[in-house]
């Protein structure tokens, strides 16, 4: 077996090459109660920072998505402290003033781009902060659609912005106020409420099993 050495929280372990950081930690004997969720790169629970020997850079990534490398120094960040102020969406307007009132620290951004470099989803995080500052909520929502709320940008930001909470609010504002309503859905819901399909449904519910099977077989399907 091709083994490599990794340092987990400062202690060295021999682990098989090709494992993800998460599996390597488990191989080394860690039981992950926190900092582990979907194991598929979606939940953002497994934020991890690491360095490689001879390289000054501090890397950030998701433990469940990142293969180990020889000599890696690994530390997991099971939780990112970040305050999310309470708000009621129906009382808000979708503009920059709303974002700044709830997250005034946005204005401290110095455009250092550290957040972007930290993002495991390769989002344009700084550009999203900049769009927040100019009140372009739709753009923020689009930039951050794939955010997994891992908090890595938030941990690295010298301006101490709680990015993922700003993103969540922006996507909510975008959905609630800036996205066109699906009028056909509203019409259909009204039709259902008015009983348009009641007859058909009642007929189905009162059918015998044989009648149901016959109806199923006779249904129209794509050729």
């Amino acid at each position: 077996m091709n083994e490599i050495t990794v340092f987990i929280m400062g202690k060295g372990y021999r682990v098989p090459a090709g494992l993800t950081i998460m599996k390597a930690m488990e191989y080394a004997g860690y039981l992950l109660n926190r900092g582990c969720g979907c194991r598929g790169g979606y939940c953002g629970a497994c934020a991890t920072v690491y360095r490689l020997p001879g390289d000054y850079k501090l890397y950030a990534d998701l433990a469940c998505q990142t293969p180990v490398q020889d000599g890696m120094y690994i530390a997991q960040l099971p939780f990112t402290p970040a305050e999310r102020p309470a708000y009621a969406l129906e009382n808000l307007t979708p503009d920059g003033a709303t974002l700044l009132a709830l997250f005034p620290e946005l204005a401290r951004c110095v455009a250092c781009n550290t957040c972007t470099k930290a993002c495991p989803q390769k989002l344009e995080v700084m550009d999203a902060v900049q769009s927040s500052l100019r009140g372009d909520i739709r753009q923020v929502a689009e930039f951050t659609f794939d955010c997994v709320s891992c908090g890595l940008c938030t941990m690295r930001c010298p301006a101490e912005i709680s990015h993922h909470h700003v993103w969540q609010l922006s996507r909510r504002l975008n959905g609630a106020y800036l996205t066109p309503r699906a009028e056909h859905v509203k019409t259909r819901v009204e039709e259902i409420a008015a009983g348009k399909f009641k007859g058909e449904l009642d007929k189905l519910v009162t059918m015998t099993k044989d009648e149901l099977v016959a109806a199923y077989k006779a249904r129209q399907i794509e050729a």
Partner: peptide, 25 residues
């Protein structure tokens, strides 16, 4: 393209390089 906030108020400190990153970008 992809401009960022200029920082609006500049730092007068001679060694505050960080505040110049945004404008220089």
């Amino acid at each position: 393209p992809r401009w960022n906030c200029c920082g609006t108020v500049y730092s007068l400190a001679q060694d505050d390089l960080m505040r110049h990153v945004g404008p220089v970008r």
